[in-house]
Design a protein around this nucleic acid. Structure first.
Lengths: 331, 331
DNA sequence: TTGTATGCGTTATCAA
DNA sequence: TTGATAACGCATACAA
């Protein structure tokens, strides 16, 4: 059997309550007993059981992070940022992935939440209905969203409109006229980037043409080739592509273009999004948009702990981070 | 206040014990009360509090995964594998990263472990002292190691010796005579790969020369250039490099070589390890060794749950996975 | 088939 | 300054 507070109490000849007070550094404990207790704790290698503590305190010291997958650059970098600020605190990280199954999202969240597995939630790129958020609110469980906006909870996000605007603008300034966009769907940031693209076209007096818009499905490298072919066919020719769906797909497109004998950037300019590790290493090196993801994760964590510890209210609010254009050789 | 088992009991007019039995699907409950209870549970949106449950059961249903960093291909893919098998079970994932600080490792582990935060541990590429493992063993907490061998616990790992042998052999068969190795250090798999390299040289009657051995520090792309220069200088020329430290560094070396006017693979053959995403995209495409990381993660999870649930003992044992040589254009 | 009683490990309240 | 007691939410052995 493992050693509990009772064992310590027995050994020292005090009650569990006294030991508990020592552990929690109560000021009204004599130095003498405190020392005795601490020594016994060391000798017997005692560690407080967090389950017992949680039960009475109603607090787990766990932070739950929810995403559809964690095996993505974005989720991973977010976690890295969260972790960075978390390590100075007493909190622990629990990860829940919904694995892309939409119906899972509600269920997973409800379960984790009602089972009181965490003191607060950080939800990465998942769109929850307001109703569920109200439930959270009613029960007093803080939630922070990353990259999605839900009524009643704070959001930490990037200025995607600006990022897309800068990217498109860069293409335009490099004399590109027939600019296509490869975009994601369903998530807010995809829509925002789409808006930034259209804004830039309009701002520079270039007609928007929906034949130059194409949706991505998997955000993979492999999707690049078919995407490029479809785009060429249906648009009747493009001279610039803003792959707002991310660098991986952009690199796939670039690869396919090279294989088709298209010269980059002479015949076709390409710009990505994310600045993943390899964007710097492709030939030509990929021009892209970089977002301070880890920093944003840190902010999400700070915001959440502020809420958990009562320093900030749970309310609609947007904390925005600015993207940066990384100019390389593909435009 | 949130709804507990008592509220349900009161509403239905039974005792908490009865409700508990319904929740746990006890066979000796009349269909009638069962229905009533279940309905009340639904109506009142009741979810069992896992803290309460854990306290009495002595089980958290949490699996802790520990690594120095999660922002690496290896850790990430491992987590992906673990996640994949975990989702069918009732377990949750807790992540702990020691952030490369060695003294953290023991502390983090001890704390998490003694506080009873998880039912079992998967430890990725960390070398623990046997003593700590004995402690775990004594307390009956199952641990599975990935890529490190520690007495008293099972290990899931790759056949690094073979992978390195195949890589070196491939260089030799392509007429390379002066073959250098860029290697990691401190971790077991680095030593194993080093052994595989030496084995292959010996097997093919090529003299081992320690001037052709160089250690990597950060496993980064940027390290490639200085590494190559140092190697050239101290070895007096090489015609093949086995970068057992991984593809990222290998690509850095390749990049540096190209900039120095060295032709690959004509003047210099390079082979990496890992088969990261971009290895297929470099010019020339990188020949490398691929390991089924996610699969190994799945196995680690299964092994751990077998131990937690009493189907397997905690004992020294090695579950090995075979690497695969991916031949592309750099050799 | 259900109720009663007890305990899991800890903390908090009140007395002493 | 410390002890006794109850409570957190749930599960289980035993009694009814």
């Amino acid at each position: 059997m493992r050693v509990t507070i009772k064992d310590i109490a027995k050994k020292v000849g005090v009650t569990p309550a006294t030991v508990s007070m020592v552990i929690n550094d109560s000021p009204k404990i004599s130095i003498k007993t405190k020392e005795l207790v601490l020594q016994a704790i060391k000798e017997m290698n005692y560690h407080p059981n967090y389950i017992g503590r949680s039960l009475v305190k109603g607090k787990t010291n766990n932070i739950a992070v929810v995403a559809s997958f964690f095996a993505s650059l974005f989720a991973l970098e977010s976690v890295r940022g969260i972790e960075n600020n978390l390590r100075r605190t007493g909190y622990n990280l629990i990860l829940y992935s919904t694995r892309g199954v939409e119906e899972n999202e509600r269920d997973v969240l409800r379960r984790v939440f009602y089972e009181r597995r965490a003191d607060g939630f950080i939800i990465i790129s998942l769109k929850l209905d307001d109703e569920l958020v109200s439930e959270f609110e009613r029960e007093g469980i803080p939630v922070v969203f990353i990259e999605e906006i839900v009524k009643g909870a704070p959001t930490v996000k990037f200025n995607n409109i600006k990022g897309a605007f800068m990217a498109t603008e860069h293409l335009i300034k490099n004399k590109r006229k027939k600019i296509a966009i490869i975009k994601g769907s369903k998530v807010l940031n995809a829509e925002e980037r789409f808006k930034g693209y259209k804004d830039a076209l309009e701002h520079y007096g270039i007609a928007y043409d929906e034949k130059r818009v194409i949706d991505v499905a998997d955000y993979t490298f492999e999707e690049g080739a078919p995407l490029l072919k479809t785009l060429m066919k249906k648009s009747g020719g493009v001279d610039g592509i803003f792959c707002s769906a991310g660098d991986i797909t952009a690199i796939g497109v670039m690869d396919a273009a090279k294989k088709m004998g298209i010269k980059i950037p002479q015949d076709l300019s390409i710009i990505g999004y994310d600045d993943v590790y390899l964007s710097n290493l492709t030939n030509p090196a990929l021009t892209t948009v970089r977002q301070p993801i880890a920093q944003m994760g840190m902010q999400a964590f700070d915001q959440l702990t502020d809420m958990i510890e009562g320093r900030a209210p749970m309310e609609s609010k947007i904390i925005s981070f600015e993207p940066e254009l990384i100019v390389r050789d593909s435009v």
